[in-house]
Design a protein around this nucleic acid. Structure first.
Length: 877
DNA sequence: ATGTTGCATGTTAGA
DNA sequence: CTAACATGCAACATA
C-alpha cells in the first residue's frame, strides 16, 4: 500500500491508517505527511477534511473508544468527549481547522487594522466561513476566547518538545491578538517527522500570505457573493513551501455564483499548496511531473453556470494533481471541472439514462425548455465524441434531468455503478468532456472482466504507482481490514483514479494506455438517433456490492472500536477534562487482535483469544486488550496455559458455540454473497415490525434480513434501511415504547403507509362521487333514461377500478420487501387493522372469533395489534 | 420476448 | 418538510 518513499515535495500519500467515523464514512491518514481525509458515502467529503495538526498530537482513549479528533492532523483518536468538548471551543458552525483558526486571529487583527488591505464583514453565520479560502476565516472575540481556552486545555496536556513547539506556535497565534501571527516552525526545521510537515506548511502562512497581492487577498476575502475556486497546481520542482504569490494570475479562479459555499474546501487542507502560474481555469501548461503529485483537489464548481442552487459537495469535481498533470498536454487549453457524479445502478444500468443532478444540469448544460431536450456532444477520454440527449422529465413540480443514450459511452469506459463520471469543460470553446474515475470496489461482480479490467488498467499517471491518493473508502477499508486480518500489505491494485479528458480536444492524453486495456472497446459513438443501447447486464443483476470487501464495509464504528488497541508498551497519561478521564497516548492506537466475548456460566463475561501460533483459544480477563499478534506465550493471565503445548480449556464443541456469533456474521455475509434471492428474502414491513416490536422470530434467524438483501436493489452493504439495520439475529424484544431506530422507522413507515391508504381511499371516494354526479347529470339529461345496464356498467366500472387497488395492495406494492408468505397475513392485518384495534379495546371475545374466522395465529394477531398500536400511536388509528 | 419511454413513486439528504 | 434523485413499472415499440 502506498509508496515507500515519502518525497519531500508532494507526498505520495501512504494511507496506513483508516478508521470508521462515528458520523459514518471513514477517515484515513497518510502516515507520511499526516494528511487526513474523510470519506462519506464513497466521496471525499470536502467539509470534513481537517487540518488536524496543531493542538495535540496525542491519542486519546475513553471508555467509548477511539474517535477522530477534529483538531489534530494525525491519526488522532481523541476521546470523543474531549474531542467534542474541545470542538465546541472552535465550533464555528462547523469544523475549525487549526490553520484557519490561527488565520482567524490574524484576520481579526487585519480587520481591526484600519490600514490593512483586507476589509471584510460578515453578516451571517455562513459568511463567517465563506471567506475561507486557503485557510482564512474570521472569528469573533468570543470564538477567540474559546480558542484560548482550548489552547490552555491542550497546553495542559502537551509535554513533548514538539508539542511545546507547536503549542508555542499556536499560543503565539492565539495569544497575541494584536500581533501578526508568527509560527515558530519553518520549513527547514528538521527535528520533526514528515508528519509534521504539512503542519509546518499550514502554519507557514503568516508572512507569505501577507505578501500576497492586494488583489488576491481581496479575491479571497471579499464577502462571498463570488466565492472562488482556487486550484493550485503542484509545483513540479517539489518545493515544499508555500510560495508567495505575486501575481493575481497565480490563482485559478472560477467564480461561483450565488450562495456562499461551505467554508472548508481544499484550500483548507493542510496539504502543501504550490502556486503555479496559471491562466484562468486550470492551466494546462504544466510539465509532467515525474514525482507523482497525488493530492486530491476538491474543486469547487465554477460559478458561471446559470443554476442558482448550490451544488452539493458530492458533486464537486475532485481533481488530483496527477489528474491535472494528465491534462497538461495542451498548453493552451484550460479545463474547468464542472461536476462529477457517482454512477448509480440506474445510471450504469441498461436503461442508458444518466440522471443528472439538477443543479449541475441547470448550471452547466444548455438551458432546455421542452422535455425533448437537445443533443449534447460530449467528448470522452479518447477524444471520441458522443452525442447524448440532454433532456428532462417533469417531476413533481420540478424537473429531472437525464442524459440519454449514455450506455455505449459508459460501456466504452467500462464503468459500472459506483464509478464516477466527471464533467468538465475545456475552454476556450466550452467543449464538454467527460472523464471517469473507477471506484476500486465498484466491482461489478456480474462482469468479472470489467472488474479485472478495472484492476488491471495501469494508466499513465495513475496514482497507483505507489501513491494511493484518494483511496476510495471501500478500498481503504478493505485494506484496513486486511491489515487487521494480518494479511500484510493491503492490496491496492483495484484502486484507480482516472480522470481522462478528451485527447481529441487537446491531444492532452496518452489514451493509448487506456486503449491497451480496453480491447473490446466499442468506442464508436452511437448517434443519439440510434437510441437503442446495449445492455450492461440483466436487470436482476444490477449493481450489488457483494464482494467480501464490500461486506466488510459493514463493519461498524463500534465493531472497529473493538479492534483498536492502545499502542503497545506505551503508558498513557491521564487527562481529566470536564470530569472526563481520558487516557492520552503518545502513539496512535493499533489494530488489536480480535477476541470473543461471551457470558461465562457464573454470569460474568469472559474473553477468549486465539493464539496466532497454535490457534488454540485462551481465556483472558475481560478488560484485556490484545495486540494484533498474540500467542500463548504471552498469556500472562493463565500460567497453566501460557504455552502452545497446553491444551485448550474448552472442548472444540464448546468453542463452536462460542464462535457461533462470528459464524453468524459470516453466514450473513455468505447469504448476501449471491445466494438466490428467494432463499434470503427479507420479510415485509409487517413482518419486520413484528420482529422488531414483538421480538418474534418470524423467519429463520439465519435468513433474517440482517445481511444485505437484493430483492430491493437499494439494499446494499451499508444500507441503512429498515431491513438492513435490523439486528443480526432478528431477535430481541422491543417494547412498544421503544424508540430505537428500527422501531421508529417502523412507526414512521406505518404512518406513511396509512396516510397513503387514507389518501387513496379519499381519492377513490372523490372519484366515485364525481362519477355519481356525472351519473345524476346524465340521468337528469336522459329524463327517464336510467337503465339498469348503465347502473351495472357503472358498478362494474367501479368494481374494476377497485380491483386493481386491491390487487395493488396485495401485489405488495406497499413494500417490495414483503415476504410472499407473509403478505397474506400482512394484507389481512392491514385490511383489518382498524377492526382489530376496536377488538382489542372493546371486545375480546369478538377478537377471538375474528381470529378463528380468519385462521390467524395468535402471534399474527399480536403482530397486527402491534401494527395497529403503532398506527394508533402515530395518530393514525 | 425483449427493449424503450415516460412518468410515477419511494427514499433520503438537506434546508 | 421538501426537493432531489434512484428506481419501478406500465405502455408501447421493435426484433
Amino acid at each position: 500500500m502506498g509508496s515507500d518513499t515519502c518525497v519531500n515535495a508532494p507526498c505520495v500519500h501512504d494511507w496506513k491508517m483508516g478508521w470508521p467515523l462515528r458520523s459514518g464514512g471513514f477517515a484515513q491518514l497518510c502516515i507520511k505527511c499526516g494528511f487526513m481525509e474523510e470519506w462519506k458515502h464513497g466521496i471525499l467529503d470536502p467539509l470534513s477534511v481537517y487540518d488536524m495538526s496543531v493542538f495535540c498530537n496525542k491519542f486519546h482513549r475513553q471508555k467509548t473508544g477511539w474517535v477522530e479528533c477534529k483538531f489534530c492532523n494525525k491519526p488522532i483518536h481523541c476521546g470523543c468527549i474531549i474531542s467534542r468538548s474541545l470542538f465546541e471551543y472552535l465550533d464555528f458552525d462547523g469544523i475549525g481547522c487549526v490553520s484557519c483558526v490561527a488565520s482567524q486571529l490574524r484576520m481579526t487583527r487585519n480587520t481591526e487594522n484600519p490600514n490593512g488591505s483586507i476589509s471584510s464583514t460578515k453578516n451571517n453565520a455562513s459568511d463567517r466561513h465563506s471567506t475561507h479560502t486557503d485557510g482564512t476565516l474570521f472569528v469573533d472575540n468570543s470564538d477567540e476566547g474559546k480558542l484560548m481556552q482550548l489552547c490552555r486545555i491542550v497546553e495542559a496536556s502537551e509535554s513533548s518538545l514538539w508539542n511545546n513547539a507547536r503549542r508555542d506556535s499556536v499560543m503565539s497565534c492565539s495569544g497575541q491578538n494584536n500581533q501578526e501571527v508568527k509560527c515558530s516552525l519553518e520549513e527547514g526545521d528538521t527535528g520533526f517527522s514528515n508528519v509534521i510537515k504539512p503542519l509546518v506548511q499550514s502554519l507557514a502562512f503568516s508572512k507569505l500570505e501577507n505578501n500576497r497581492s492586494t488583489r488576491e487577498i481581496k479575491n479571497i476575502h471579499e464577502p462571498t457573493a463570488q466565492p472562488s475556486l482556487n486550484m493550485y497546481l503542484g509545483n513540479p520542482s517539489g518545493n515544499n513551501t508555500i510560495l508567495p504569490s505575486s501575481s493575481s494570475g497565480e490563482i485559478l479562479e472560477a467564480r461561483l455564483e450565488g450562495k456562499a459555499f461551505p467554508p472548508f474546501n481544499q484550500g483548507q487542507r493542510s496539504r502543501p499548496i504550490w502556486p503555479k502560474p496559471l491562466k484562468t481555469g486550470i492551466s494546462m501548461n504544466l510539465e509532467p511531473d515525474k514525482g507523482a503529485l497525488s493530492h486530491a483537489r476538491i474543486a469547487r464548481p465554477p460559478a458561471d453556470g446559470r443554476g442558482k442552487s448550490q451544488l452539493l459537495p458530492r458533486y464537486w469535481p475532485r481533481i488530483t494533481d496527477q489528474e491535472l498533470e494528465r491534462l497538461s498536454g495542451d498548453l493552451k487549453s484550460t479545463v474547468v471541472p464542472l461536476f462529477e457524479k457517482v454512477l448509480s445502478a440506474s445510471d450504469a444500468g441498461r436503461i442508458g439514462r444518466l440522471v443528472l443532478p439538477k443543479a449541475c444540469a441547470e448550471a452547466y448544460f444548455p438551458p432546455i425548455s421542452n422535455s425533448e431536450g437537445l443533443s449534447l456532444r460530449v467528448q470522452d477520454v479518447k477524444g471520441n465524441e458522443w452525442t447524448f440527449q440532454f433532456r428532462f422529465w417533469p417531476n413533481n413540480n420540478s424537473r429531472m434531468y437525464v442524459l440519454e443514450g449514455v450506455t455505449p459511452c459508459i460501456q466504452a469506459m467500462q464503468l459500472c455503478a459506483g464509478d464516477t463520471v466527471t464533467f468538465s469543460r475545456i475552454d476556450p470553446g466550452g467543449k464538454l468532456v467527460m472523464g471517469f474515475r473507477k471506484a476500486s470496489n465498484s466491482i461489478d461482480t456480474q462482469d468479472a472482466s470489467t472488474s479485472a479490467h478495472s484492476n488491471g488498467i495501469s494508466t499513465k499517471g495513475t496514482t497507483n504507482s505507489g501513491g494511493t491518493e484518494n483511496l476510495p473508502p471501500g478500498s481503504s477499508f478493505a485494506d484496513l481490514l486486511q491489515m487487521i486480518k494480518g494479511n500484510g500489505e493491503p492490496h491496492l491494485n483495484g484502486h484507480l483514479e482516472h480522470l481522462h479528458l478528451g485527447a481529441g480536444a487537446a491531444g492532452l492524453l496518452k489514451a493509448e494506455n487506456c486503449e491497451k486495456t480496453n480491447n473490446h472497446s466499442p468506442q464508436q459513438p452511437i448517434p443519439v438517433s440510434e437510441k437503442r443501447t446495449r445492455n450492461i447486464g440483466p436487470k436482476s443483476k444490477r449493481f450489488c456490492i457483494d464482494k467480501e470487501d464490500a461486506m466488510e464495509l459493514r463493519l461498524t464504528w463500534e465493531e472497529a472500536q473493538d479492534l483498536l488497541r492502545p499502542p503497545p508498551s506505551v503508558q498513557p497519561s491521564i487527562v481529566t477534562i470536564e470530569d472526563q478521564v481520558i487516557e492520552e497516548y503518545e502513539e496512535p492506537p493499533v489494530f488489536g487482535k480480535r477476541t470473543i466475548f461471551c457470558a461465562c456460566p457464573s454470569g460474568g463475561k469472559e474473553q477468549w483469544a486465539q493464539c496466532d501460533d497454535c490457534s488454540k483459544w485462551r481465556r483472558l480477563p475481560v478488560e484485556i486488550l490484545l495486540p494484533p499478534k498474540w500467542t500463548c506465550f504471552e498469556n500472562v493471565w493463565d500460567a497453566s496455559r501460557c504455552s502452545c503445548s497446553m491444551p485448550e480449556e474448552k472442548s472444540s464443541r464448546q468453542f463452536e458455540n462460542l464462535l457461533k456469533p462470528s459464524k453468524d456474521f459470516k453466514k450473513r455475509k455468505t447469504l448476501a454473497n449471491g445466494k438466490s434471492i428467494k432463499e434470503r428474502e427479507p420479510c415485509g414491513l409487517d413482518a419486520l415490525a413484528s420482529a422488531a416490536v414483538l421480538g418474534e422470530n418470524l423467519m429463520d434467524p439465519a435468513e433474517s434480513s440482517a445481511g444485505a438483501t437484493t430483492k430491493h436493489p437499494r439494499h446494499r452493504p451499508g444500507c441503512s434501511c429498515i431491513v438492513c439495520i435490523q439486528p443480526p439475529s432478528g431477535k430481541g424484544r422491543h417494547k412498544p415504547t421503544c424508540t430505537c431506530n428500527v422501531c421508529m422507522t417502523v412507526k414512521r413507515r406505518f404512518k406513511t403507509l396509512m396516510l397513503r391508504k387514507k389518501k387513496r381511499q379519499s381519492e377513490r371516494e372523490a372519484d366515485a362521487a364525481a362519477k355519481e354526479d356525472n351519473n345524476h347529470q346524465r340521468d337528469g339529461s336522459n329524463a327517464n333514461g336510467a337503465s339498469k345496464d348503465d347502473t351495472s356498467h357503472l358498478e362494474k366500472e367501479r368494481g374494476l377500478k377497485d380491483q386493481p387497488e386491491a390487487g395493488e395492495s396485495s401485489a405488495g406494492r406497499i413494500d417490495l420487501n414483503s415476504h410472499p408468505n407473509r403478505e397474506d397475513i400482512q394484507m389481512d392485518i392491514t385490511g383489518l387493522s382498524m377492526s382489530i384495534n376496536n377488538l382489542e379495546i372493546t371486545n375480546h371475545q369478538a377478537r377471538e372469533e375474528y381470529m378463528n374466522m380468519n385462521g390467524l395465529k395468535n402471534s399474527d394477531v399480536q403482530a397486527s395489534q402491534h401494527s395497529s398500536l403503532l398506527t394508533q400511536s402515530n395518530g393514525e388509528g
